[in-house]
Amino acid sequence: MLRHFQMLADYNRWANERIYDACAALPDDDYRADRGAFFGSAHRTLNHLLVADRIWLRRITGTGTAPMELNVVLYEDLAELRTARAAEDERFIRLTTSLAPDAFERSVSYTPVTVPTPVTEPLGPILAHVFNHQTHHRGQVHAILTSLGQPSVVLDMIAFLRKDGKQWMS
Rank of each mutant, 00 (worst) to 15 (best):
F104K: 05
L50D: 11
R3H: 03
M169P: 13
D30R: 13
A87V: 11
H133F: 04
A159F: 09
C23W: 07
P27E: 15
R3P: 07
I144V: 08
W14P: 08
R18I: 14
K166W: 13
Q6I: 13
R162C: 08
H137S: 03
W56E: 08
D34N: 12
L46W: 08
D29Q: 14
T114F: 11
G64F: 02
L148D: 03
A24F: 09
N47T: 06
A22N: 14
G124A: 02
F5Q: 04
A33Y: 06
T120F: 00
F39E: 13
L127V: 04
E90M: 15
D102C: 08
R94I: 12
Y20Q: 12
P116Y: 05
H137F: 02
R94P: 01
A15M: 14
R35H: 09
T83G: 15
L2C: 06
E76D: 11
L81R: 14
F104C: 02
L8V: 03
T83Q: 11
A128M: 01
H48F: 02
L8S: 02
A9M: 04
G62P: 10
L46A: 07
N16I: 10
G124N: 08
R3A: 08
F5T: 05
P151D: 13
W14V: 06
E88I: 02
A66H: 07
E76M: 05
A143L: 02
V115Y: 00
S152E: 15
H4S: 05
R35G: 08
T61K: 00
I144H: 01
A66G: 03
N47R: 13
N132V: 09
N47F: 06
G124M: 06
L46F: 05
Y31H: 04
V115H: 00
K166M: 14
I158A: 05
P122E: 02
I60E: 07
A143F: 00
L2G: 04
R82P: 13
A87N: 15
R162N: 12
A103P: 14
Q134H: 00
